[in-house]
């Protein structure tokens, strides 16, 4: 018997009688908190920055003032082509983006309870980008924010994403004596721009 059959048959023999799968009712978690306030607070707790803007142009000009030193920039927002200093095409390897300073992406889902934003494959030309870029900037519509992860997954249920990530704040570590250091392997900063 190969290991697959072996494992499956052992489980079949050893598992308990079927137990019921509990139903998740998100209503029991309702806490009446203001969704935008909560999202703002949680982005900041996670080490991120939060701004409000009215348009893509407004966003770009704020980003340029925030990072005057940045040289290599890329944005997927509509009408921001002049900001880009490189193109992302199929013949480039993930390694080629090591020096990316600023990456601007759009998110269609934010979660108030933890300040996370969802980035699916379709919103980024290459998977490594939000991790390899030094400064990650996310544009998010206020209407795209939900209360809890439960509602988040309800929205994602119809999306057949090949890869997607919830990101909350910049990369961080506390592995040296529990002191929090922002900037581990991923982005050194994360800014969310609400529209």
């Amino acid at each position: 018997m190969n290991s697959r059959e072996n494992i499956l048959s052992r489980i079949a023999a050893n598992k308990p009688d079927l137990l019921e799968l509990p139903k998740v009712n998100p209503d029991v978690f309702i806490d009446g908190k203001n969704i935008i306030d909560e999202f703002t607070k949680k982005v900041e707790i996670a080490g991120g920055n939060l701004f409000e803007v009215v348009s893509n142009e407004d966003l770009i000009s704020q980003v340029i003032t925030m990072f005057p030193e940045a040289k290599i920039n890329f944005s997927t927002l509509k009408g921001t082509e002049s900001f880009n200093t490189l193109s992302v095409d199929a013949n480039k390897a993930p390694q080629d983006f090591e020096d990316l300073d600023i990456l601007i992406l759009e998110s269609n889902l934010g979660v108030a309870e933890n300040g996370a934003v969802w980035l699916p494959d379709n919103n980024m030309p290459m998977r490594v980008l939000p991790f390899i870029a030094k400064h990650l900037v996310i544009a998010l519509k206020k209407e795209a924010i939900v209360t809890f992860m439960h509602q988040g997954y309800q929205k994602l249920a119809s999306e057949g994403t090949d890869f997607g990530v919830f990101i909350s704040g910049p990369s961080k570590t506390a592995d040296i004596e529990q002191s929090l250091v922002i900037g581990a392997h991923g982005a050194l900063s994360l800014s969310v721009f609400l529209m």
């Binding site: 707790i45 996670a46 933890n114 998977r127 994403t161 090949d162 890869f163 997607g164 909350s168 990369s171």
Partner: peptide, 16 residues
């Protein structure tokens, strides 16, 4: 750790 979610929760479904 008391964080409300980890920085990255990566959902892999298909290889790139």
């Amino acid at each position: 750790t008391g964080q409300h979610i980890t920085t990255y929760s990566s959902h892999f479904k298909k290889p790139r």
